[in-house]
Design a protein around this nucleic acid. Structure first.
Lengths: 145, 145
DNA sequence: TCAAAACCTAGTAAAACGGTAGGTATTATG
DNA sequence: CATAATACCTACCGTTTTACTAGGTTTTGA
């Protein structure tokens, strides 16, 4: 039931990316995001690679290159981010691979499916723009104090 | 977000135990459960050890010894089973350890808390007796065909 | 041409996973 | 009292995953 750091880091990085590029169409470099989030550049690179393949990010190479969100952040669900970097999110493997041949397993499978659906419902409803907005607000509060 | 086999095995074993001991107060041996579930006896032993500590199981040693549920299965939530064998179920570690000092992290923490609550709500509402019942029904259907 | 960036490949230490092996302690029964 | 069945305990162990790091190549704008 535990997410690895991949999911958490990706989310933090994308929130940061979204925040930094708000309103503009500038490319944000890995270096920049790495500095802001304190996530190592190399590790971030691997995550961003996956996020590119999932069409959550686009990139531009060369000088002044960097990354941008491929879509408006209101179209990017948290679930799509997690699935992109973590692989399947289903609580047990046999939901993915259909490995069972006994009725006991079928029982638990039904049960896992239920849990799985509930989790997916949560993370596929929440959207990146909401988190960016929350971040912006948190930051404003932090500045005042 | 993925559960290891510990959670799945434990659940399967407890459903089986509950099913086998329905109505009676007999002790069910590890060997018996291992045979029915095809989970290795040694591995099962480790899981049952944890489930004992969580007061989900009780045991009796010596000949004719074995395990019983410590409470009626309607009082055993799936969540308590998972937590017993998997440790914390929170999606990210920083929910447990309070490791953050930056506002970004606080943002994500808020978010994780939300997801966490939803997951817990699902697994703490579902109860072992329901799964045993489902198993019993599945078995009946299997017998007919 | 040069510097900054993405892109690519490989390695790696540590932890977790999914067990196995082999013993000790306890208990009902013949 | 001996025995067999059981829980209980400790340790080990191969494999996979995690969370990185290192060191290069390619692209691009100025």
């Amino acid at each position: 039931m535990r997410l690895s750091t991949k999911g958490r880091y990706s989310l933090e990085a994308l929130v940061m990316l979204g925040f930094l590029s708000q309103g503009m169409h500038a490319n944000i470099s890995l270096k920049h995001i790495s500095q802001e989030t304190e996530i190592s550049e190399g590790y971030l690179e691997q995550l961003f690679n996956k996020l590119k393949k999932s069409e959550i990010l686009i990139s531009k190479r060369g000088k002044d290159g960097g990354y941008q969100l491929a879509k408006p952040p209101s179209d990017i669900t948290i679930g799509s981010i997690f699935r992109s970097v973590e692989g399947s999110l289903s609580p047990v493997k046999c939901l993915d691979t259909d490995c069972c041949d006994r009725s006991e397993f079928c029982l638990t499978r039904c049960f896992w499916t239920e849990i799985n659906d509930e989790i997916n419902q949560v993370i596929d409803t929440l959207v990146l723009s909401e988190l960016i907005e929350t971040y912006r607000k948190n930051l404003a509060i932090g500045d005042k104090s």
